[in-house]
């Protein structure tokens, strides 16, 4: 390694070393030492045991994966009706995951109506609204109608104040309203049992 840094550049890399039957991840960096005239007179190499860091990194990766899986559950609510509850913040990564999860589920189950419940989304801005509009367009292309539900008064006001055009999307205030609408689309009727 010291030979390699004779070129005057700094090197940093990761490797693994086996010590007493144990494999330890190592990080090393090599720096050339230069005197006033610019001539290389030596080198410095630093080797670090990064077992813990690698462990943390792997755990973080796993957790990220779990959170992503948890954050986009598409649930079958009725024959041909799916629900995707959204909680938290919608960024472009998340929106893409939502779309992916929805489209594959639609293809699998032949759902005709999908309800996107944004009750748990704290803030809806232009970007979030755009993502939602994109998702509804995508489901439309799959032959599945999308109903946006869980729009609180505050969110509705924000959308109007921001001047976002959501006319193209079927929107409802609550999940139960959306379900009623879905039943209407599927020509279903809910009746009280006769005594």
């Amino acid at each position: 390694m010291l030979k390699a840094m004779k070129s005057g550049k700094t090197y940093a890399s990761r490797t693994e070393a086996t010590l007493g039957g144990q494999t330890i991840p190592l990080e090393f960096s090599a720096v050339p030492l230069v005197d006033d005239s610019g001539e290389i007179i030596g080198g410095l190499e630093l080797v670090l045991d990064i077992t813990e860091r690698v462990l943390y990194e792997n755990r973080l990766k796993e957790q990220n994966h779990t959170i992503r899986e948890m954050s986009t559950p598409t649930i079958k609510l009725w024959e041909g009706v799916m629900v995707l509850p959204v909680v938290g913040v919608v960024d472009s990564m998340r929106a893409q995951h939502m779309m992916e999860s929805m489209l594959t589920k639609i293809a699998e189950t032949y759902a005709k109506v999908i309800i996107l419940d944004i009750h748990g989304v704290a803030a809806v801005d232009t970007a979030v609204a755009n993502h939602l509009i994109k998702i509804t367009k995508a489901t439309k292309l799959m032959g599945c109608d999308c109903i946006l539900s869980g729009i609180s008064p505050a969110v509705a006001q924000t959308i109007i104040q921001l001047g976002i055009d959501m006319e193209a999307i079927n929107t409802r205030a609550t999940l139960s309203d959306a379900l009623t609408e879905a039943f209407l689309m599927l020509n279903l009727e809910v009746n009280k049992k006769k005594q």
Partner: peptide, 22 residues
């Protein structure tokens, strides 16, 4: 789904009046 994903990524102006089925 893959084709739909591509179309959305390309930002194609989708005509919502066309009827689609799965």
């Amino acid at each position: 789904p893959g084709v739909v994903f591509g179309l959305i990524d390309l930002d194609v102006a989708i005509n919502t009046r066309i009827k689609m089925a799965i």
